[in-house]
Design a protein around this nucleic acid. Sequence first.
DNA 1: CAGTATCCCCCCAGATACTG
DNA 2: CAGTATCTGGGGGGATACTG
Lengths: 125, 125
Amino acid sequence: MELLKKVEFVKKCPTSYVLAINDTLNAIQGKWKMPIIAVLLFGKKRFKEIEREIPKITPRMLSQELKDLEMNGIVKRTVYDTTPVTIEYEITPSGEQLHDVLEAMIRWGLAHRKSNVMKNLPVFK
Amino acid sequence: MELLKKVEFVKKCPTSYVLAINDTLNAIQGKWKMPIIAVLLFGKKRFKEIEREIPKITPRMLSQELKDLEMNGIVKRTVYDTTPVTIEYEITPSGEQLHDVLEAMIRWGLAHRKSNVMKNLPVFK
DNA sequence: CAGTATCCCCCCAGATACTG
DNA sequence: CAGTATCTGGGGGGATACTG
């Protein structure tokens, strides 16, 4: 769908579009969501594994964000009945579909940085 | 680029991708960025016009967000030498390219809501 | 291992009022 | 019109310690 048509659509039916964008934003927004999703795109991981792969994240934050992601259907949590229990986190099919969004974001980010229009962007964050 | 290749790429060259995603997130993240961008996609607007079109936004927030967007090269601010001065905000070409990201987000948001995997999403925000 | 529980600080953002 | 100034509360998120 091209821009003008979309704009027209938004005019006529704002709620569903705004809602959809909001859902997506909620899914990926927050300091640690993207890193966690990125890590899980490489496959199932356990709590400590994720923690180890994301520098500086605290268990408190990891726990909290994983709950969010689970509630939003991005991540699935499975408890295995071993002793002690093993718990694995994996990305859901729906979560995996986020790669389209990520690719669009990567493409825009690269192009935008190249176009050099940013006046005051920190090189690292 | 498909997922696996991207993942490989991320493994080899994490910084640029993470940076790009970060840039994009910074551009659109925040409570009022998307509404402002949406409004400006309809054309040039003045401060008060934007304020009127976005319910509940305060001048303080609008001013702040517009500055952010300008610094990030998403929005251009033009001062016209009338009396009193007229100031117009318009979206930049680079900002307009965000529609690819928006469309990806809309597509994912709609599909994800349809797939009904969300356990606890507020119907309205 | 897989998390909770507490404490605490900072800053985002709302309310309200004011200015060139 | 096009914003800025000031005050304020709530919560996101860090540090640290603890638990089944």
